[in-house]
Design a protein around this nucleic acid. Sequence first.
DNA 1: AGGGATGGTTGCAAATCTAAACCCACCCGC
DNA 2: GCGGGTGGGTTTAGATTTGCAACCATCCCT
Lengths: 157, 157
Amino acid sequence: MVETHQPDDCSIQRTLDAIGDRWTLLILRDLFRGVRRFSMIQADLGIARNLLADRLSSLADEGVVKKVPYQDRPPRHEYHLTAKGRALSPALVALMRWGDDYYTDGGAPTELVHDQCQTRLELQPWCTSCNSPVDPTHIRSAPGAGRVLRTTETEDV
Amino acid sequence: MVETHQPDDCSIQRTLDAIGDRWTLLILRDLFRGVRRFSMIQADLGIARNLLADRLSSLADEGVVKKVPYQDRPPRHEYHLTAKGRALSPALVALMRWGDDYYTDGGAPTELVHDQCQTRLELQPWCTSCNSPVDPTHIRSAPGAGRVLRTTETEDV
DNA sequence: AGGGATGGTTGCAAATCTAAACCCACCCGC
DNA sequence: GCGGGTGGGTTTAGATTTGCAACCATCCCT
Protein backbone atom coordinates (compact mmCIF):
# COMPACT_ATOMS: atom_id res chain seq x y z
CA MET A 1 0.00 0.00 0.00
CA VAL A 2 1.23 3.45 -0.76
CA GLU A 3 2.20 5.38 2.30
CA THR A 4 1.29 8.95 1.63
CA HIS A 5 2.88 12.01 3.12
CA GLN A 6 -0.25 13.77 4.20
CA PRO A 7 -2.93 11.23 4.92
CA ASP A 8 -4.53 13.68 7.28
CA ASP A 9 -5.98 16.63 5.56
CA CYS A 10 -7.56 15.44 2.39
CA SER A 11 -10.61 13.33 1.91
CA ILE A 12 -9.69 12.62 -1.66
CA GLN A 13 -6.59 10.91 -0.43
CA ARG A 14 -8.51 8.75 1.97
CA THR A 15 -11.14 7.98 -0.58
CA LEU A 16 -8.55 6.87 -3.07
CA ASP A 17 -6.84 4.76 -0.44
CA ALA A 18 -10.13 2.98 0.03
CA ILE A 19 -11.43 2.63 -3.51
CA GLY A 20 -8.92 4.33 -5.79
CA ASP A 21 -7.57 1.18 -7.30
CA ARG A 22 -7.76 0.72 -11.07
CA TRP A 23 -10.06 -2.28 -10.77
CA THR A 24 -12.02 -1.31 -7.72
CA LEU A 25 -13.97 1.44 -9.41
CA LEU A 26 -14.83 -0.86 -12.28
CA ILE A 27 -15.99 -3.49 -9.83
CA LEU A 28 -18.19 -0.90 -8.18
CA ARG A 29 -19.55 0.08 -11.55
CA ASP A 30 -20.57 -3.52 -12.13
CA LEU A 31 -22.19 -3.71 -8.73
CA PHE A 32 -24.20 -0.58 -9.53
CA ARG A 33 -25.24 -2.21 -12.78
CA GLY A 34 -26.49 -5.23 -10.91
CA VAL A 35 -23.60 -7.54 -11.74
CA ARG A 36 -23.06 -9.04 -8.32
CA ARG A 37 -21.55 -12.49 -8.57
CA PHE A 38 -17.91 -13.39 -8.61
CA SER A 39 -17.84 -15.09 -11.93
CA MET A 40 -20.13 -12.54 -13.56
CA ILE A 41 -17.84 -9.69 -12.56
CA GLN A 42 -14.81 -11.67 -13.53
CA ALA A 43 -16.17 -12.42 -16.97
CA ASP A 44 -17.36 -8.86 -17.46
CA LEU A 45 -14.11 -7.16 -16.51
CA GLY A 46 -11.56 -9.77 -17.46
CA ILE A 47 -9.85 -9.22 -14.14
CA ALA A 48 -7.62 -11.96 -12.74
CA ARG A 49 -9.52 -14.09 -10.24
CA ASN A 50 -7.11 -13.61 -7.38
CA LEU A 51 -7.27 -9.86 -7.76
CA LEU A 52 -11.02 -9.89 -7.88
CA ALA A 53 -11.13 -11.96 -4.69
CA ASP A 54 -8.68 -9.57 -3.09
CA ARG A 55 -10.52 -6.41 -4.14
CA LEU A 56 -13.88 -7.76 -3.09
CA SER A 57 -12.62 -8.66 0.33
CA SER A 58 -11.04 -5.23 0.69
CA LEU A 59 -14.31 -3.64 -0.26
CA ALA A 60 -16.06 -5.81 2.29
CA ASP A 61 -13.52 -4.78 4.92
CA GLU A 62 -14.20 -1.16 4.07
CA GLY A 63 -17.91 -1.72 4.45
CA VAL A 64 -18.58 -0.71 0.88
CA VAL A 65 -19.98 -4.07 -0.11
CA LYS A 66 -21.32 -7.02 1.80
CA LYS A 67 -21.67 -10.68 1.06
CA VAL A 68 -25.25 -11.79 0.78
CA PRO A 69 -26.01 -15.51 0.55
CA TYR A 70 -28.45 -16.53 -2.13
CA GLN A 71 -28.37 -20.25 -1.52
CA ASP A 72 -27.26 -22.57 1.26
CA ARG A 73 -25.96 -25.78 -0.20
CA PRO A 74 -23.51 -25.21 -1.63
CA PRO A 75 -23.11 -21.88 0.13
CA ARG A 76 -23.17 -19.18 -2.52
CA HIS A 77 -23.39 -15.47 -2.20
CA GLU A 78 -23.47 -12.21 -4.06
CA TYR A 79 -21.79 -8.93 -3.35
CA HIS A 80 -24.17 -6.10 -2.64
CA LEU A 81 -23.45 -2.43 -2.17
CA THR A 82 -24.06 -1.08 1.29
CA ALA A 83 -25.38 2.42 1.90
CA LYS A 84 -21.78 3.55 1.99
CA GLY A 85 -21.18 1.93 -1.35
CA ARG A 86 -24.28 3.42 -2.89
CA ALA A 87 -23.12 6.81 -1.71
CA LEU A 88 -20.43 6.59 -4.36
CA SER A 89 -23.05 6.98 -7.04
CA PRO A 90 -22.42 10.71 -7.60
CA ALA A 91 -18.72 10.08 -8.02
CA LEU A 92 -19.28 7.36 -10.57
CA VAL A 93 -21.88 9.42 -12.36
CA ALA A 94 -19.45 12.32 -12.53
CA LEU A 95 -16.69 10.15 -13.93
CA MET A 96 -19.09 8.70 -16.44
CA ARG A 97 -20.26 12.11 -17.55
CA TRP A 98 -16.71 13.25 -18.07
CA GLY A 99 -16.02 10.22 -20.21
CA ASP A 100 -19.22 10.90 -22.13
CA ASP A 101 -18.13 14.45 -22.82
CA TYR A 102 -14.60 13.73 -23.92
CA TYR A 103 -14.43 10.19 -25.21
CA THR A 104 -17.58 9.54 -27.16
CA ASP A 105 -15.95 8.56 -30.40
CA GLY A 106 -18.93 7.72 -32.49
CA GLY A 107 -22.08 6.37 -30.91
CA ALA A 108 -23.07 7.87 -27.61
CA PRO A 109 -22.70 5.38 -24.79
CA THR A 110 -25.10 5.01 -21.94
CA GLU A 111 -26.59 8.21 -20.68
CA LEU A 112 -28.45 9.15 -17.57
CA VAL A 113 -31.51 11.22 -18.22
CA HIS A 114 -34.36 12.88 -16.39
CA ASP A 115 -37.26 10.52 -16.98
CA GLN A 116 -39.80 13.31 -17.25
CA CYS A 117 -38.19 15.12 -20.14
CA GLN A 118 -35.44 12.77 -21.34
CA THR A 119 -32.83 15.44 -20.81
CA ARG A 120 -29.36 14.36 -19.98
CA LEU A 121 -28.35 14.98 -16.41
CA GLU A 122 -25.62 17.23 -15.15
CA LEU A 123 -24.13 17.16 -11.69
CA GLN A 124 -24.44 20.55 -10.16
CA PRO A 125 -22.90 21.86 -6.96
CA TRP A 126 -25.90 22.64 -4.79
CA CYS A 127 -26.35 24.75 -1.71
CA THR A 128 -28.89 23.18 0.58
CA SER A 129 -29.18 26.36 2.56
CA CYS A 130 -29.94 28.68 -0.33
CA ASN A 131 -31.65 25.78 -2.05
CA SER A 132 -30.08 26.74 -5.32
CA PRO A 133 -27.22 25.72 -7.58
CA VAL A 134 -23.87 27.29 -6.90
CA ASP A 135 -21.71 28.82 -9.57
CA PRO A 136 -18.10 27.58 -9.53
CA THR A 137 -16.94 31.10 -8.79
CA HIS A 138 -18.80 30.96 -5.48
CA ILE A 139 -17.21 27.79 -4.27
CA ARG A 140 -14.81 28.29 -1.42
CA SER A 141 -12.99 26.04 1.01
CA ALA A 142 -13.74 26.01 4.68
CA PRO A 143 -11.28 24.93 7.37
CA GLY A 144 -7.84 23.93 6.22
CA ALA A 145 -7.19 27.07 4.26
CA GLY A 146 -5.10 26.43 1.18
CA ARG A 147 -5.56 22.72 1.12
CA VAL A 148 -8.50 22.62 -1.15
CA LEU A 149 -9.83 22.03 -4.59
CA ARG A 150 -9.79 25.49 -6.03
CA THR A 151 -12.44 25.03 -8.60
CA THR A 152 -12.83 28.75 -8.94
CA GLU A 153 -9.65 29.35 -10.85
CA THR A 154 -10.46 30.47 -14.30
CA GLU A 155 -7.13 30.92 -15.97
CA ASP A 156 -6.84 28.40 -18.72
CA VAL A 157 -3.81 30.32 -20.01
CA MET B 1 -1.70 -1.16 -20.01
CA VAL B 2 -4.75 -3.15 -19.08
CA GLU B 3 -6.60 -4.58 -22.03
CA THR B 4 -10.24 -4.54 -21.14
CA HIS B 5 -12.94 -6.74 -22.52
CA GLN B 6 -15.50 -4.08 -23.27
CA PRO B 7 -13.80 -0.81 -23.97
CA ASP B 8 -16.75 0.18 -26.04
CA ASP B 9 -19.84 0.76 -24.03
CA CYS B 10 -18.83 2.39 -20.84
CA SER B 11 -17.57 5.87 -20.29
CA ILE B 12 -16.39 5.00 -16.83
CA GLN B 13 -14.02 2.53 -18.37
CA ARG B 14 -12.64 5.07 -20.75
CA THR B 15 -12.39 7.68 -18.07
CA LEU B 16 -10.47 5.35 -15.83
CA ASP B 17 -8.18 4.41 -18.68
CA ALA B 18 -7.35 8.08 -19.01
CA ILE B 19 -7.10 9.22 -15.41
CA GLY B 20 -7.89 6.21 -13.23
CA ASP B 21 -4.41 5.68 -12.00
CA ARG B 22 -3.75 5.77 -8.27
CA TRP B 23 -1.49 8.82 -8.53
CA THR B 24 -3.17 10.61 -11.38
CA LEU B 25 -6.21 11.68 -9.42
CA LEU B 26 -4.00 12.96 -6.63
CA ILE B 27 -1.95 14.92 -9.13
CA LEU B 28 -5.14 16.42 -10.47
CA ARG B 29 -6.20 17.32 -6.97
CA ASP B 30 -2.96 19.22 -6.53
CA LEU B 31 -3.45 21.02 -9.81
CA PHE B 32 -6.91 22.05 -8.70
CA ARG B 33 -5.40 23.33 -5.48
CA GLY B 34 -2.97 25.43 -7.43
CA VAL B 35 0.07 23.23 -6.92
CA ARG B 36 1.41 23.28 -10.44
CA ARG B 37 5.14 22.75 -10.50
CA PHE B 38 6.94 19.50 -10.77
CA SER B 39 8.86 19.76 -7.55
CA MET B 40 5.91 21.16 -5.62
CA ILE B 41 3.71 18.27 -6.62
CA GLN B 42 6.49 15.84 -5.97
CA ALA B 43 7.10 17.20 -2.48
CA ASP B 44 3.39 17.32 -1.72
CA LEU B 45 2.56 13.81 -2.81
CA GLY B 46 5.81 12.02 -2.17
CA ILE B 47 5.48 10.39 -5.58
CA ALA B 48 8.59 9.08 -7.29
CA ARG B 49 9.96 11.58 -9.77
CA ASN B 50 9.96 9.25 -12.71
CA LEU B 51 6.33 8.38 -12.11
CA LEU B 52 5.37 12.00 -11.77
CA ALA B 53 7.09 12.82 -15.05
CA ASP B 54 5.34 9.88 -16.66
CA ARG B 55 1.90 10.73 -15.33
CA LEU B 56 2.19 14.40 -16.21
CA SER B 57 3.16 13.60 -19.75
CA SER B 58 0.26 11.17 -20.02
CA LEU B 59 -2.08 13.84 -18.76
CA ALA B 60 -0.64 16.24 -21.30
CA ASP B 61 -1.12 13.64 -24.04
CA GLU B 62 -4.72 13.28 -22.96
CA GLY B 63 -5.19 17.03 -23.12
CA VAL B 64 -6.09 17.21 -19.46
CA VAL B 65 -3.16 19.42 -18.55
CA LYS B 66 -0.80 21.57 -20.54
CA LYS B 67 2.67 22.89 -19.97
CA VAL B 68 2.78 26.62 -19.50
CA PRO B 69 6.15 28.38 -19.41
CA TYR B 70 6.62 30.83 -16.62
CA GLN B 71 10.18 31.84 -17.44
CA ASP B 72 12.48 31.55 -20.42
CA ARG B 73 16.02 31.09 -19.28
CA PRO B 74 16.24 28.50 -17.95
CA PRO B 75 13.03 27.28 -19.58
CA ARG B 76 10.64 26.47 -16.78
CA HIS B 77 6.99 25.70 -16.89
CA GLU B 78 4.00 24.78 -14.82
CA TYR B 79 1.26 22.30 -15.47
CA HIS B 80 -2.14 23.86 -15.87
CA LEU B 81 -5.49 22.21 -16.18
CA THR B 82 -7.21 22.60 -19.52
CA ALA B 83 -10.95 22.98 -19.83
CA LYS B 84 -11.08 19.20 -20.12
CA GLY B 85 -9.14 18.91 -16.91
CA ARG B 86 -11.28 21.40 -15.09
CA ALA B 87 -14.32 19.44 -16.17
CA LEU B 88 -13.18 16.77 -13.73
CA SER B 89 -14.05 19.04 -10.86
CA PRO B 90 -17.43 17.42 -10.12
CA ALA B 91 -15.84 14.00 -10.00
CA LEU B 92 -13.17 15.11 -7.57
CA VAL B 93 -15.69 16.97 -5.48
CA ALA B 94 -17.86 13.87 -5.35
CA LEU B 95 -14.96 11.68 -4.27
CA MET B 96 -13.98 14.22 -1.67
CA ARG B 97 -17.50 14.44 -0.29
CA TRP B 98 -17.65 10.68 0.04
CA GLY B 99 -14.40 10.69 1.97
CA ASP B 100 -15.76 13.49 4.13
CA ASP B 101 -18.84 11.49 4.91
CA TYR B 102 -17.17 8.21 5.72
CA TYR B 103 -13.62 8.90 6.83
CA THR B 104 -13.70 11.97 8.99
CA ASP B 105 -12.23 10.41 12.06
CA GLY B 106 -12.03 13.39 14.34
CA GLY B 107 -11.53 16.85 12.92
CA ALA B 108 -13.42 17.65 9.76
CA PRO B 109 -11.08 17.98 6.81
CA THR B 110 -11.36 20.57 4.11
CA GLU B 111 -14.85 21.39 3.04
CA LEU B 112 -16.25 23.13 0.04
CA VAL B 113 -18.83 25.74 0.89
CA HIS B 114 -20.98 28.31 -0.77
CA ASP B 115 -19.16 31.57 -0.13
CA GLN B 116 -22.35 33.54 0.34
CA CYS B 117 -23.69 31.49 3.21
CA GLN B 118 -20.86 29.16 4.23
CA THR B 119 -23.05 26.14 3.67
CA ARG B 120 -21.39 22.94 2.67
CA LEU B 121 -22.00 21.96 -0.91
CA GLU B 122 -23.75 18.92 -2.19
CA LEU B 123 -23.61 17.56 -5.69
CA GLN B 124 -27.04 17.36 -7.14
CA PRO B 125 -28.17 15.73 -10.35
CA TRP B 126 -29.53 18.61 -12.37
CA CYS B 127 -31.81 18.79 -15.34
CA THR B 128 -30.78 21.63 -17.62
CA SER B 129 -34.04 21.40 -19.47
CA CYS B 130 -36.34 21.65 -16.46
CA ASN B 131 -33.72 23.81 -14.79
CA SER B 132 -34.26 21.99 -11.54
CA PRO B 133 -32.69 19.29 -9.43
CA VAL B 134 -33.63 15.71 -10.18
CA ASP B 135 -34.62 13.20 -7.58
CA PRO B 136 -32.75 9.88 -7.83
CA THR B 137 -36.03 8.10 -8.48
CA HIS B 138 -36.36 10.07 -11.70
CA ILE B 139 -33.01 9.10 -13.06
CA ARG B 140 -33.16 6.74 -15.98
CA SER B 141 -30.70 5.44 -18.50
CA ALA B 142 -31.02 6.24 -22.14
CA PRO B 143 -29.58 4.13 -24.96
CA GLY B 144 -27.68 0.98 -24.03
CA ALA B 145 -30.42 -0.53 -21.92
CA GLY B 146 -29.05 -2.56 -19.08
CA ARG B 147 -25.55 -1.20 -19.27
CA VAL B 148 -25.97 1.55 -16.80
CA LEU B 149 -25.40 2.82 -13.32
CA ARG B 150 -28.66 1.99 -11.71
CA THR B 151 -28.62 4.68 -9.10
CA THR B 152 -32.25 4.18 -8.37
CA GLU B 153 -31.91 0.75 -6.88
CA THR B 154 -33.04 0.78 -3.32
CA GLU B 155 -32.53 -2.78 -2.19
CA ASP B 156 -29.85 -2.81 0.43
CA VAL B 157 -30.94 -6.39 1.16
C1' DA C 1 34.80 28.09 -10.19
C1' DG C 2 31.41 26.36 -6.84
C1' DG C 3 26.74 25.90 -5.19
C1' DG C 4 21.84 25.81 -5.52
C1' DA C 5 17.24 25.50 -7.87
C1' DT C 6 14.43 23.17 -11.28
C1' DG C 7 13.12 19.42 -14.07
C1' DG C 8 14.07 15.66 -15.45
C1' DT C 9 16.37 10.43 -16.93
C1' DT C 10 18.48 5.95 -15.78
C1' DG C 11 19.15 1.51 -13.33
C1' DC C 12 18.02 -1.82 -10.17
C1' DA C 13 15.45 -4.14 -6.32
C1' DA C 14 10.85 -4.75 -4.53
C1' DA C 15 5.97 -4.91 -4.98
C1' DT C 16 2.04 -5.92 -7.94
C1' DC C 17 -0.39 -7.97 -11.67
C1' DT C 18 -1.64 -11.71 -15.10
C1' DA C 19 -2.50 -16.18 -16.54
C1' DA C 20 -3.08 -20.70 -15.79
C1' DA C 21 -3.44 -24.56 -12.95
C1' DC C 22 -5.40 -26.51 -9.06
C1' DC C 23 -8.93 -27.35 -5.15
C1' DC C 24 -13.32 -28.21 -2.95
C1' DA C 25 -18.25 -28.74 -2.25
C1' DC C 26 -22.12 -29.57 -4.45
C1' DC C 27 -25.54 -30.97 -8.17
C1' DC C 28 -26.98 -33.68 -12.20
C1' DG C 29 -27.37 -37.46 -15.36
C1' DC C 30 -26.80 -42.22 -15.88
C1' DG D 1 -21.24 -43.98 -7.27
C1' DC D 2 -18.75 -42.06 -11.28
C1' DG D 3 -17.90 -38.33 -14.80
C1' DG D 4 -18.76 -33.75 -15.84
C1' DG D 5 -20.19 -29.07 -14.87
C1' DT D 6 -20.76 -24.87 -11.84
C1' DG D 7 -19.43 -21.38 -8.42
C1' DG D 8 -16.01 -19.46 -5.77
C1' DG D 9 -12.13 -19.34 -4.78
C1' DT D 10 -6.29 -20.23 -3.72
C1' DT D 11 -1.57 -21.13 -5.42
C1' DT D 12 2.29 -20.56 -8.23
C1' DA D 13 5.31 -18.80 -11.65
C1' DG D 14 6.48 -15.17 -14.84
C1' DA D 15 5.88 -10.47 -16.75
C1' DT D 16 5.02 -5.43 -15.47
C1' DT D 17 5.11 -1.54 -12.66
C1' DT D 18 6.76 0.94 -8.73
C1' DG D 19 9.80 3.14 -5.58
C1' DC D 20 14.21 4.81 -4.54
C1' DA D 21 18.49 6.70 -5.25
C1' DA D 22 21.85 8.48 -8.17
C1' DC D 23 22.93 11.01 -12.05
C1' DC D 24 22.51 14.73 -15.77
C1' DA D 25 21.57 19.34 -17.77
C1' DT D 26 20.61 24.26 -17.71
C1' DC D 27 20.71 28.36 -15.90
C1' DC D 28 21.56 31.91 -12.09
C1' DC D 29 24.25 33.89 -8.33
C1' DT D 30 28.53 35.18 -6.02
